[in-house]
């Protein structure tokens, strides 16, 4: 079974605030789709609308072509982890998974399977109230996997995790996509998705800013720039600027040059007798690409921030 998570023209207003403003995108089977935007951009609200928890003012969200609320065994179509702390503190982890399984007619042995899959075997019989954040995330992921769904959705799954936990989740997301599932994962930090996502939907102020493959985005952000290392940065920058290049000081002895091909840079520096120790095509990080995209869309300002639920 394959399933696509599809969002079409979603709009949601909370009082005077337009939280989601005509959002459309698709999370396709076999890919990890990163859903990125600053805090308050509307990521959680969008995910809640996909799950039918919040009703959109306009537009629709479909899972495998159907609205979530029309699904008879929804956990077998879309597994989701929105808020890992949303577990009753007095209920044992195993019992939390049990009632979810019962609600969708999922066989009891599947509860044991996801407990093992999420590495919760040793704590499954303890009340969830004593769990660390990392264990709660694992329990949330176990719950999402319970129905063996073809589509999965995680809201900020690595938020607050230690590096080991981050690596585990990244690997898990990759393997779920490799099995042909559609995986939608939100984050407010692009760096968290570095090497983890195939496709990106970047949003800001409730709108899509970019909907692109990770490879294309990086190529565009790296676009025609050259990284230069030189012990005499000042003279190098002056010489290159005189030739019409745009130059920017980067790290201590590095300069980022755009507007001149690498061969021409070498010629200019040689002619001006400026020594240099390295020259390479610039490779943008996801973080840089993201900063460039969201420069105009960042709405997080002091005193007005906070993710709306």
């Amino acid at each position: 079974m394959e399933a696509t998570i599809e969002v079409r023209g979603l709009r949601k207003r909370f009082g005077p605030r337009l939280a989601v403003d005509g959002l459309s995108f698709t999370a396709a089977p076999g890919l990890v789709t990163g859903f990125v935007g600053p805090n308050g951009a509307g990521k959680s609200t969008t995910m809640r609308m996909i799950l039918g928890l919040d009703r959109p003012d306009e537009g629709a969200a479909l899972v495998g072509g159907r609205p979530y609320r029309s699904l008879r065994t929804p956990l077998c179509h879309l597994g989701a982890m929105l808020d890992a702390s949303a577990v009753h503190p007095a209920r044992r982890a195993r019992d939390h998974l049990r009632w979810l399984a019962h609600a969708n007619g999922i066989p009891a042995r599947r509860v044991g399977e996801v407990i093992e899959l999420a590495g919760l075997g040793s704590v499954a019989n303890r009340p969830a109230g004593g769990f660390s954040l990392g264990m709660r995330q694992r329990l949330g992921i176990a719950a999402a996997l319970l129905g063996d769904p073809p589509a999965l959705m995680f809201d900020e799954p690595v938020n607050g995790l230690d590096p080991e936990g981050v690596a585990w989740i990244r690997g898990l997301l990759r393997s779920l996509a490799a099995q042909g599932r559609a995986v939608l994962v939100s984050s407010h930090l692009m760096s968290e998705l570095e090497g983890g996502a195939d496709h990106l939907v970047v949003i800001g102020r409730g709108r899509v800013i970019a909907d692109t493959g990770v490879a294309e985005l990086l190529a565009a952000a790296s676009g025609g720039r050259t990284e230069l290392r030189t012990p005499d940065r000042q003279r190098a920058m002056t010489a290159l600027a005189r030739e019409g290049a745009e130059v920017a000081a980067a790290e201590r002895d590095a300069v980022t040059v755009s507007g001149l091909p690498a061969e021409r840079i070498i010629e200019v520096l040689t002619a001006a007798r400026v020594p240099f120790t390295g020259i390479a095509e610039h490779r943008a990080t996801l973080e840089e690409a993201y900063m460039e995209l969201t420069r105009d869309a960042v709405e997080f300002r002091a005193g007005t921030g906070g993710e709306a639920l």
Binding site: L53, P74, V87, H88
Partner: peptide, 14 residues
Amino acid sequence: AAGTIGATLTAVPR
């Protein structure tokens, strides 16, 4: 109070 209402309604949307 526990926040499980979201899980309940995702498991049984009606």
